[in-house]
Amino acid sequence: MRPFIVLALALAVVGAGPAGADPPVALTPDLAAGEWKPLIDALASKGAVEASFTESRYFPFRAEATVLTGTLRISPDRGLSLGYTKPEVSTLIADSSGLLSRDSEGRSREMPSGSRQGGAIASLLPIMSFDMKALFPQFDIRAQRTGMDWAFEFAPRDPQTASSLGTITVSGTGSQVRHLEFRRSQRQRIEIETQETRSGFSFTPGELASYFR
């Protein structure tokens, strides 16, 4: 099959989209403050979130995804925590100080927010809290809604962050986030599916100490 036919077919498939879906729109501050405001407010005011998740890592040199499972936690004050339970126990914390990785023996490794990798990860925090004021300067945002389902696509404006993280897609239903995707290419991406989700509560001091820094 010649490449241009493949490309044409692919464009046709992508362009068709799911039946009944609104076309994606480039989200502007005006739109965010207008028709998208109720959804954004609902997502932003969720407070603490805890959800089990399955992470699929796709590498360009491997056909199958590497699958990890664990519990995702978001604290509006303390950032994002990914507590992996399989295949091995570890915790990844992204907050305003940067990125912290903690292994099963409690050893920590830090990437300060001043560093390149840490800075890129730290830029995720406004996405987790749907802080549009902080997001607009950093990302080109596209949004799409189909009934109760919605999706936001964040493309970093900074080329370095873009090459490090790729495009970030957050999608869900109602006020629940169901899917996160970090895509550098079709063969190089991370997909995080959330399952049982709990929100609108507060973490205990013990949980904050265990899962955040």
Binding site: R57, F59, F61, T66, S101
Partner: peptide, 15 residues
């Protein structure tokens, strides 16, 4: 190694 936190950052050099 691919399941470790470092793997995503190191994936470009693994080949």
């Amino acid at each position: 190694y691919l399941a470790k936190p470092d793997a995503m950052a190191a994936q470009d050099i693994l080949t």
